[in-house]
Design a protein around this nucleic acid. Structure first.
Lengths: 223, 223
DNA sequence: CCGCAATGTGTCACCCAATGACAGATGACC
DNA sequence: GGTCATCTGTCATTGGGTGACACATTGCGG
């Protein structure tokens, strides 16, 4: 299965930079070019049958350079998901403290979806292609595994934020773990049923739908 | 993340064979030797720093032979989990039809754990080393991703069995998907908290504990 | 405007996982 | 014992990924 994903945590960071010097602009340009060329190739011939060599040839840089921008081929493919995941955590942090955890999660989901909807932030978040990205990830075992890893990372993030919000110890109190794991599992399921069709709105509706049955339980267990 | 796991489905199959001819015995012997040598090396120097070459040198076979027994290095490392996962599905199939889904899942878990407890079925299920195997998997990103893939595979299996038991269509009725996803998510979480310490019994206790809060919800949604 | 330091990039060499092709060895079965 | 299927080793090759080093470009202070 030849997979990696060692450097997930350091993958984003460089988002919406002020774009000051020429150096930075050049870097951003080659990075975007790599992402664009990669997705074009992925769509036309699939992820596994696309070599790093082909990507770098299209952009006219060396293979070595590719791996200075992305720790691995899969990190490139998964960057949209990483961005979405981080956006969600950020929105969750912004939820008012008096919301119950389950409501904070649902509201953060709506907020994050609203942010991503307009698209056009930069090359990776171009929402028109996001649908195809989802399809590609779900249909490529290697990428699906990495996708699940991002889900795991998201779960850990949620545990941390919820525990902080509710002022409980995430080690001794199992509730943050439970709600985070269940929420992510339902999100993943919703994402699979969604399949990328019908826009982000449909995904949110699906997730809400799945979550609805469990809301009473989680409300009871927290206040 | 250099991972694979393409041939998960075909990995088990050869379990508790009658051991007839000399040929079969020899094959089984080299296979077991590979597994044993691999785990020794994994424990002493970690998964990623162990090369296939080192494993095959220890057993004195060619690298090519290794890949005739295992589709990938990670398939070898994950075979205990695959076996456990398949055992669970099998037990779930054996549950009487009048049990509610959530009860069938819990009972199947107990049954499968009981089966695995004695250990000593063959090299891979040697339960004494299973604890260390879990630790190794959880601490190796590459293996953790593959572990999550097995969880996904288990989820799909559960959906199928539940839908069959309850005579519902798994595509239109979302309940099998929900209960399977939630169950697997809680199992995974329990497994991470467990960490391999305290025997399989403790894992079952943890899983039961996590599941307990959601039992009322799932009982209500089915009958 | 110039020179230095930092940083980005290309080249080369290398490791490891994995696969295909082919030939030789070995057990199965009559 | 001989034939046949199957297992195995050897060889060559591909593709992902990394380290080392040299060169080029940019940023910046004088």
């Amino acid at each position: 299965m030849t997979c990696t994903l060692n450097h997930v945590s350091s993958a984003v960071a460089n988002n919406s930079t002020p774009v000051c010097g020429l150096r930075e602009r050049k870097k951003r340009r080659t990075r975007d070019a790599l992402v664009r060329a990669a997705w074009d190739l992925f769509h036309s011939q699939g992820y596994e049958r696309t070599t790093v060599r082909e990507i770098t040839d299209a952009v006219e840089v060396s293979e070595r350079t590719f791996f200075r921008y992305f720790a691995s081929k899969e990190e490139l493919a998964l960057s949209p998901l990483l961005i979405a995941s981080d956006a969600f955590i950020e929105q969750l942090r912004l939820r008012p403290a008096d919301e119950r955890p389950v409501d904070a999660l649902r509201n953060a989901l709506h907020a994050a979806a609203g942010l991503l909807e307009p698209g056009q932030l930069d090359a990776e978040t171009d929402w028109e292609q996001h649908s195809q990205a989802v399809k590609l990830i779900e249909s490529t075992p290697h990428l699906l595994a990495a996708h699940l890893m991002i889900g795991q990372r998201l779960t850990d993030g949620i545990i941390e934020v919820i525990a902080e919000r509710e002022a409980v110890d995430p080690v001794t109190d199992r509730r943050p773990r439970i709600i985070a794991a269940v929420f992510c599992a339902l999100m993943t399921t919703a994402g699979q049923v969604w399949g990328g069709d019908g826009g982000i709105d449909r995904l949110v509706v699906l997730a809400d739908d799945y979550l609805a049955e469990l809301v009473p339980t989680f409300r009871d267990s927290w206040h």
